[in-house]
Simulated scan of single mutants.
Amino acid sequence: MSKKYIVHIDLDSFFVSVERKFNPSLMGKPVIIGGAEGRGVVASCSYEARQFGIHSAMPTQQALKLCPHAIVLRGSHGRYSEASREVTEIIHDSVPLYQKTSVDEFYIDLTGMDRYYDPYILATELRQRIIRQTGLPISFGMASCKTVAKMATNQAKPNGQLWIKHGDEKSFMAPLNISKIPMLGEKTCEKLYQYGIEKIRDLQKVDIRFLETVFGKAGHYIWEKANGIDDSEIVPHSERKSISTEHTFGNNTTDRRTLETILVSMTEELAFKLRSENKLASCLAIKLRYANFETHTLQEKIAFTSAEHILIPGIKNLLKRAWNQHRPIRLIGVKLSQLCSGSYQINLFEDNEEQIKLYKAMDTINFKYGNKTVCRAAGMEIGQRNFNPFLSK
Results as ranks from 00 to 15, higher is better:
K4D: 08
V16C: 10
V16I: 01
E19F: 00
R20N: 05
S25V: 03
S25I: 03
I33T: 10
Y47W: 08
E48H: 03
A49Y: 07
G53Y: 09
H55R: 08
H69C: 14
V72T: 05
E86R: 12
E89C: 08
H92W: 00
P96I: 06
Q99A: 13
K100Y: 09
T101I: 15
S102N: 03
D118W: 11
L122H: 05
I130K: 03
Q133N: 15
M151P: 03
A156N: 05
L176F: 04
P182L: 07
M183R: 13
E186L: 00
C189Y: 01
K191T: 15
Y195I: 12
I197A: 04
I197F: 05
L203N: 08
W223L: 01
D231Q: 14
S232H: 12
S238L: 13
R240D: 07
H247A: 04
G250Q: 03
T254S: 11
L263N: 03
E268H: 04
L270E: 05
L270H: 03
A271N: 09
K273D: 09
K273Y: 02
K279D: 06
C283L: 06
R289V: 14
F293R: 12
I302P: 05
T305W: 04
I310A: 14
L311R: 03
G314H: 05
L319T: 02
R330P: 11
S337K: 02
N352D: 15
N352C: 13
I356R: 04
N366T: 03
G370R: 06
A378I: 05
N386M: 12
